[in-house]
């Protein structure tokens, strides 16, 4: 398939006697928002860590854009075009919002390492404008000289998204993007995710909050006990009896 971004084939992973992932096959299609849901301990985090090359599976292949990413270092995977948003927002708290985004933009522009000490940052006008544009696309350009650490959790998340936007990542991995957020911040994030959905960035969302999943996802995969038990559109998943037994109605299990 030419239009798949990430292809996971026959992935198995065990921790001691515990089978965390059991023969996972998953294809993430281009320009789609693919959500992965599942109860606690279903193997979501393990799958995510395999997706970003952090964890090597026992068997199987993970191809990103047709290239193997297993065993690659974090910065190499990012340079290939896979950006990641963490469960707790990870930003440069001591720097300003603009500087945060500029660092992401510079990574895209200059690669993993560049020794450039005689050029003044203020001369990088194109890069700076790009960063300001990314901030204005999430509605934060009016506070770009504020220190990032002083913002609310929801705003930190938005800043993190802006950093991925400016890199024009091919695939964006969101690990519980609304975890620990107030209702207001969650709704803001949903709005933002919907808005940036339009620019065609492929996304994988790992999420607990069904409200978020059903509002933004094109495709949903349900993970239970290390296996993918169903994949389909939100409507299909809602009406799937196996899923209802395993997860949606699993509260009384």
């Amino acid at each position: 398939m030419a239009d798949s971004v990430l292809k996971i084939t026959n992935v198995n992973k065990s921790f001691g006697g515990l089978k965390a992932l059991n023969n996972i096959n998953l294809t993430i299609e281009k320009n789609k928002v693919h959500a992965i849901i599942g109860p606690n301990g279903a193997g979501k985090s393990t799958l995510l860590n395999v997706c970003i090359g952090l964890l090597a599976p026992d068997t199987g292949k993970v191809l990103f854009d047709g290239k193997n990413i297993i065993g690659k270092q974090a910065h190499e995977i990012n340079q290939m075009g896979l950006a990641r948003v963490f469960q707790t927002p990870e930003i440069f708290t001591e720097l300003t919002l603009l500087e945060n985004v500029m660092i992401a933009a510079l990574a895209k522009q200059e690669g993993a390492f560049k020794f450039k000490i005689f050029r003044n940052l203020a001369e990088e006008k194109a890069m700076m404008q790009e960063s300001i544009d990314a901030l204005s696309s999430i509605g934060m350009d009016n506070q770009m000289y504020d220190i990032a650490g002083s913002m609310s959790r929801g705003n930190k998340r938005r800043l993190e998204l802006a950093m991925c936007l400016v890199q024009r990542a091919k695939l964006l991995l969101l690990d519980e993007p609304t975890a620990g957020m107030s209702r207001h911040d969650t709704n803001q994030t949903i709005k933002l995710l919907k808005k940036i959905k339009a620019d065609g960035m492929t996304k994988i969302i790992i999420e607990h909050d069904m409200h978020v999943v059903f509002s933004v996802a094109d495709t949903i995969s349900v993970l239970a006990r290390g296996e993918i038990i169903a994949t389909g559109t939100p409507d299909e998943i809602k009406n799937n009896p196996i899923v209802q037994a395993a997860y949606l109605g699993g509260g009384n299990e």
């Binding site: 270092q73 974090a74 910065h75 990012n78 340079q79 950006a83 990641r84 963490f86 990870e90 930003i91 440069f92 708290t93 001591e94 720097l95 500087e99 500029m102 660092i103 992401a104 510079l106 990574a107 895209k108 200059e110 690669g111 993993a112 390492f113 560049k114 020794f115 450039k116 000490i117 005689f118 050029r119 003044n120 940052l121 990088e124 950093m163 890199q167």
Partner: peptide, 22 residues
């Protein structure tokens, strides 16, 4: 310089730096 900004960013959050592609 951009180099100096990146050094400051390493001080602030090296983990994020790696996942930002550095």
């Amino acid at each position: 310089s951009p180099f100096g900004l990146k050094l400051k960013a390493i001080k602030s959050n090296q983990h994020r730096m790696k996942y930002t592609g550095y």
